[in-house]
Write a protein that binds this DNA or RNA. Structure first.
Length: 881
RNA sequence: GGGCGCUUAGCUCAGCGGGAGAGCGCUUCCCUGACACGGAAGAGGUCACAGGUUCAAUCCCUGUAGCGCCCACCA
């Protein structure tokens, strides 16, 4: 290492520079990110990396019009940590960024903007509207990119993609065409979920069900002996009834099956039919059948060849039915009931009834089942393959407890409605001819020319294009170097909430389009970020947090570390500002530990000396460090970020700062060979910890590491190797004993009310025992016990393990306090003795418990015995107050 | 209506067959020459309830209560 003259550099970016006493994230983050970008560290697939194994993550593309919320920050922290670690491990790591056009969501946002100007999309026309959305995308997308830079995301910006890119659009068209030709995409008239506000079809998962209050009314159809009573929560749909259905075995109605009944309020007569679907136990056992407005009824209608009568238009307004025409469905409902009541046909009054109602996941409007002509994906064979890929272990789902949800969905999937009556999205590449021809147009084909040909007006479900993301972003359908190198992707990191929306769809498409090759090897599912009381974050509830606010206040590292600490696989993450403050404190602690080390000449310029040349304390730290490397490495591998972060936190704060640094002050002050060794241990331990922490907290670690080592960058530094040779149980035991002694003396001091500044002379005995030998200076340093002067007169004593400490309290000992303390300890020791004795007296225990367990209890017994003896003696020796 | 999960310190959560843990909060003392975004020492829990299995249960099994999530075309 070249020796650099220390200069004042508040950012701490210059090797050898002085560090300020507080870590100031704002001074470090921007310059470091710039530097990383300039040096091209995040660019994958460079020629010189050709020999490295590839590692790929594609980002779950955020909605262009949005901004990143804490959930994104969480997800990005995990992906960045995985990517950075792999890069350090010597992989050619690609984290591919990008955004989603998010069809319906984006269109809604832009329409809302237009509404402020008093315009609708129809005022602009399709082309101008789409142009407007592109414009909006340009403005809005920038915010997300800025947030990603703030977070420190190590994405490969040269490969950024957007689902409406030309290349990705080609991929969409190619898949559509292939599926169309394979008969996996078809057009049909079906009952679909319709949003009367968004004016488009929705897929099943875009409908959210909630338990809503409704009213069940019973209506009498027909008169006299032929009368039949039906119940409904949607009275207005009776206008479209084309039958009444009963169960075939229902004796009450057998005589009526095959007859007709007059439909009230209209002059239509409708048949009474028998169908298994009807539950004779529910209500009256008779059901009104409205094929055009209920999926079940549609099926019944098909079975019985009933006509479908549509009575609501696309906005949910009643069409052409006398007095009700022009009424909204929710106005029509009470109007119809009132009219029926007037005719005396309401036989049971309205009854409150809670039932499940579907709502548009985008706008909350009650979904209307609607009969219409739409495009569908035939899902059966694709879903089977998607299920099998997980069953056969080709794709692993983490945590496995969430596999069940995946199977439940994939194994029972209805055909997927993919057409949307929107303008923003991939237009369906199908053209209709003047004489009813239908032509699906591939990406490199020209649409049919000539009079009368028109393209389908609809666009594709936004999840159609995001389902292609793992390969469309890598250049498919072309056989590109990227595709060959980086597909299948390594890990998919995403929330369990879009397991169905996205993960399952990528599986369907990936396996289909890539000839059975899975889109990713592992799916790592994370939970949702919640507020500090575990409540869902939402803007309307007022508990949503902009990650930028916390990054501004506490730094990106603090936010990232907080999120990582909460990342138990698959479980939700509560987060509050106090948590982030705690992480900020941790970063600052780390900063100051490094500052101490640098101030005291810590270095990595020379190799770590062999164990024989190191003190017990040094060997202890390196042993702990060795265990830490193994733990953290294994935890990262299993996506156990919370555990990894926790281990690192405690190593840094407890082992390194509270013990090692304090202990190191003694040899450092002494100089010579011990000081030299200490500087090396400080340097190497810090170096390793910074490497281990870098994936999670990239900024502080980078700033400190370059200062400490003078190295180029942690981003491209090597990941620490596990090294079991530094494990040293003897040193750990010895320092454990030392810690016990120190803690006990401190406790004594504290309970005696002795201030740290108060000089206390003490004589230490029993230091000849193994483990404590030669640690007297350390003990004195950490407990602030002075070497006794002439005329030392001990007035108090305590003993821990083999060590006896006699103190000169100059007659100020607080006898009642000491008696209370000892009495409490005595009681604890007695209890311990009792339980251990009882256990060992149990013959079943002796006979059946494994030997190590018994040995442990024996050990506890002897320890308790000696404690008892020791404490009793101390109590006896205590002068009467 | 199905399926899954949760109930551990004031709060948020780890742990999971053999001596109850963390962070924050709380109490006392301390601005000691890395750090007050700090240091030291503490208090605080019949691990929801009831049975069962076991030498041993917070941990396994059964049931009860409360909470949460997902799925579902029952009028």
């Amino acid at each position: 290492m070249t020796v650099t003259e220390p200069t004042h550099d508040p950012a701490g970016l210059t090797p050898g520079a002085d560090l300020p006493s507080q870590f100031v994230p704002a001074q470090v983050e921007g310059p470091l990110y710039e530097r990383w970008i300039e040096r091209g560290y995040f660019t994958a697939g460079k020629p010189e990396d050709a020999d490295k194994p590839p590692f790929t993550i594609v980002i779950p593309p955020p909605n262009v019009t949005g901004s990143l919320h804490l959930g994104h920050a969480f997800e990005h922290t995990l992906m960045d940590a995985l990517t950075r670690r792999r890069r350090m491990q010597g992989y050619d790591a690609l984290w591919l960024p990008g955004m989603d056009h998010a069809g319906i969501a984006t269109q809604n946002v832009v329409e809302r903007e237009l509404a402020k100007e008093g315009l609708s999309r129809h005022d602009l026309g399709r082309e101008a509207f789409v142009e407007r959305v592109w414009q909006w995308k340009g403005e809005s997308g920038g915010k997300i990119l800025g947030q990603m830079r703030r977070l420190g995301d190590s994405v490969d910006w040269s490969r950024e993609r957007f689902t409406m890119d030309e290349g990705l659009s080609r991929a969409v068209q190619t898949v559509f065409k292939k599926m169309y030709d394979d008969g996996l995409i078809y057009r049909a008239e079906r009952i679909i979920n319709w949003c009367p506000r968004c004016l488009t079809a929705l897929s099943d998962i875009e409908v959210e069900h909630s338990e809503d209050d409704g009213e069940l009314v019973s209506i009498r159809y027909g008169d006299g002996d032929d009368a039949i009573v039906v119940a409904t929560t949607r009275a207005e749909t009776m206008l479209g009834d084309t039958a009444v259905a009963v169960h075939p075995d229902d004796e009450r109605y057998k005589h009526l099956v095959g007859t007709e009944v007059a439909l009230p309020l209209t002059n239509r007569r409708i048949p009474i039919i028998a169908d298994d679907h009807v539950d004779p136990g529910f209500g009256t056992g008779a059901v009104k059948v409205t094929p055009a407005h209920d999926p079940n009824d549609f099926e019944i209608g098909r079975r019985h060849d009933l006509p479908s009568l549509t009575i609501l238009d696309e906005r949910g307004v009643v069409t052409a039915h006398g007095p009700f025409e022009g009424l909204d469905r929710f106005e029509a409902r009470p109007a119809v009931v009132a009219a029926l009541r007037e005719q005396g046909r309401i036989v049971a009054e309205k009854r409150p009834y809670v039932h499940s109602v579907g709502h548009c996941s985008r706008c909350g409007t009650t979904v209307e089942p609607r009969l219409s002509l739409q495009w569908f994906v035939r899902v059966e064979t694709l879903a089977k393959a998607a299920g099998d890929a997980v069953r056969e272990g080709k794709v692993a789902i983490h945590p496995t407890s969430l596999e069940g949800r995946y199977f439940a969905w994939v194994d029972d999937l209805h055909d997927w409605c993919i057409s949307r009556q929107l303008w923003w999205g991939h237009r369906i590449p199908v053209w209709y001819g003047p004489s009813g021809e239908t032509v699906c147009v591939g990406p490199d084909e020209q649409p049919p020319a000539g009079e009368g040909w028109v393209q389908d007006n609809d666009v594709l479900d936004t999840w159609f294009s995001s389902g292609l993301w793992p390969f469309s972003t890598l250049g498919w359908p072309d056989d590109t170097p990227d595709l060959r190198r980086f597909y299948p992707t390594s890990v998919l990191v995403t929330g369990y909430d879009i397991l169905f929306f996205w993960v399952a769809r990528m599986m369907l498409f990936g396996l289909y389009a890539m000839d059975g090759e899975q889109p990713f090897d592992v799916v790592a599912l994370h939970g949702m970020v919640r507020d500090k009381h575990g409540k869902k974050m939402s803007k309307s509830f007022g508990n949503a947090v902009d990650p930028l606010d916390w990054m501004d206040a506490y730094g990106s590292d603090a936010l990232r570390f907080t999120l990582a600490r909460g990342a138990n696989p698959g479980t939700d993450v509560p987060i509050g500002e106090e948590w982030v403050q705690g992480s900020r404190n941790f970063c600052n602690k780390l900063w100051n530990a490094a500052r101490f080390a640098l101030l005291n000449g810590a270095t990595t310029a020379e190799p770590l000396p062999p164990a024989e040349q190191l003190s017990t304390v040094d060997r202890w730290l390196l042993s702990r460090l060795s265990a830490l490397v193994a733990e953290v490495d294994a935890d990262y591998e299993q996506f156990e970020f919370a555990k990894a972060a926790e281990s690192l936190y405690h190593f840094v704060w407890d082992d390194f700062c509270d013990w090692y640094v304090e202990l190191a002050k003694v040899p450092l002050a002494g100089g010579g060979e011990p000081a030299r060794a200490t500087r090396l241990v400080l340097g190497h331990a810090l170096d390793t910890v910074l490497r281990l922490l870098h994936p999670v907290v990239p900024f502080v670690t980078e700033a400190l590491w370059t200062s400490l080592t003078g190295g180029e960058s942690l981003v491209v530094a090597d990941w620490p190797a596990r090294d079991a040779t530094r494990l040293d149980p003897a040193a750990e035991a010895e320092v454990g004993a030392l810690q016990d002694v120190v803690t006990e003396v401190r406790r004594f001091r504290s309970e005696q009310g002795l201030r740290p500044s108060q000089r206390v002379g003490a004589r230490l005995a029993g230091l000849d025992a193994p483990g404590i030998a030669a640690h007297e200076p350390l003990i004195r340093s950490l407990t602030r016990l002075e070497v006794p002067e002439d005329g030392f007169a001990p007035t108090a004593s305590l003993s821990v393990r083999t060590v006896k400490v006699e103190l000169d309290l100059s007659g100020t000992i607080d006898i009642p306090a000491e008696r209370a303390r000892l009495t409490k300890d005595l009681a604890a020791a007695r209890k311990e003795l009792e339980t251990a004795t009882a256990k060992l007296a149990n013959t079943d225990f002796i006979a059946k418990a494994p030997e190590p367990v018994i040995a442990k209890v024996r050990g506890r017994l002897t320890a308790a015995e000696s404690d008892l003896e020791r404490i009793s003696a101390q109590l006896d020796a205590l002068p009467a107050s």
